[in-house]
Design a protein around this nucleic acid. Structure first.
Lengths: 221, 221
DNA sequence: CCGATAACCGACTCACATGTCGGTTGTAAG
DNA sequence: CTTACAACCGACATGTGAGTCGGTTATCGG
């Protein structure tokens, strides 16, 4: 679109890149199952069979794009969070980095985290790997903070906390895509309000420490 | 399985219910696109065409199940949270109710919130309706608390907070399905730790109020 | 200028899944 | 008992999309 290529014959690597770019957009927009190879081909400016000259199958094409984009995300976030600063500052910087990626690469965010497939076992495995890696790196990053909260990062309780953080943040990024008028700063502020301060900051409520441990009666089957 | 029906001919309503039950399981296990009507038919103990004697199409079958299960969830949660008690207690009770539903109805939770489709526009619309309703009711429930935090529930900032709560909780329930050894109480405790107390509860860190408002430099395209 | 390589295309095969239709039989009312 | 309805089934019609194959032509090194 931008480049005036007027449908010339391209060297393999360039065509490959174009196909991957087209696949990213179409997969993100329509989901894995609903996209026909035909659509990707059209978006890439070639016919369907050309896709098979460059990628062995639809599945491999998706997986390739998935891993490319994940690498970009990791690089993006990694590049702009520093190990220094107070814990609160670090959390804020990380949220900021993630949301800025989501802002600049909406298709990538959607493709990576809106899992519209999960059917194909191989794709499922790739997604799991990406997710696991992300959880692990976040847990490592928060290691000191979790310990100070009384949680061993190896514990399942700590993992649960991290999972809540990650999926909540993802969900917020998703919501943002539907409410674009909100600025990234406001978004970070809302996230910090919950994740950092918590909801207990009520002027006239009971003191911070959480209330009674149990719940009266809770019977499920 | 439990009932020894030995493949007899059933009255319409009973067969209908069986089909819906089978559809719930299979849709949840394999996702919408990947499930063939054949599988549902086998699980229901009939042949494929019988499904079409009771439901006009695959899409309508899914939507029916979706709405049934959502109604059950709303009833389940609504029945065991009371309007009374301190805000912290109410939040805890709600988390408990939601997680107990997820525990007792894993397929329903997965089907309702793991959106493995989103392709079909009509199904998308139904999902959106369910999601909207849920967000609204949570916002109403938290109305007073949000106001005390300085947020007008109508504000987008408040909606963002609610979205983070909901998706984070969903994600945690999802994680729980993969780590069944964790008890529901532990799960609720982890959720409360983040959502209620926040991560700032560090013995030797800066005081509760959040740190500097801005972030140094953050340039994204 | 001239092959050889590789990018590109059209047309085909094949598999699979949805939805339909006509017929068959259990079952319950009269 | 019998009759009529409704539950059930087998076979087909249709559409769609993934992956293959042989041929064509641009492009580039020599």
């Amino acid at each position: 679109m931008a480049s005036k290529e007027l449908r010339k014959r391209l060297p393999g690597s360039a065509r490959r890149a174009r196909i991957a770019g087209a696949a990213l957009e179409v997969f993100a927009a329509r989901g894995y199952h609903a996209t026909a190879m035909e659509e990707i081909a059209i978006a890439a400016g070639v016919t369907r069979s050309v896709l098979y000259d460059h990628f062995p199958s639809k599945r491999v094409l998706l997986i390739t794009v998935l891993q490319e984009q994940n690498a970009l995300l990791v690089e993006h976030v990694g590049a702009r969070i520093t190990g220094s600063g107070s814990p609160g500052r670090r959390l804020r910087a990380t949220l900021n980095a993630y949301f800025s990626f989501a802002e600049g690469n909406p298709a990538a965010r959607r493709l990576l985290f809106d899992h519209t497939d999960e059917d194909d076992p191989e794709i499922k495995a790739v997604r799991w790997g990406i997710r696991e890696a992300r959880t692990r790196s976040v847990a490592v990053m928060l290691g000191r903070d979790l310990r100070r909260l009384g949680l061993d990062p190896e514990t399942e309780a700590a993992q649960a906390v991290v999972e809540l953080l990650i999926t909540g943040t993802d969900g917020l990024a998703q919501w943002w895509a539907r409410h674009p008028s909100v600025s990234r700063d406001q978004l970070v502020e809302s996230a910090m309000l919950v994740l950092w301060n918590g909801l207990s900051r009520l002027p006239d409520d009971s003191p911070p420490p959480c209330d009674g441990p149990g719940l009266p009666g809770e019977d499920v089957r």
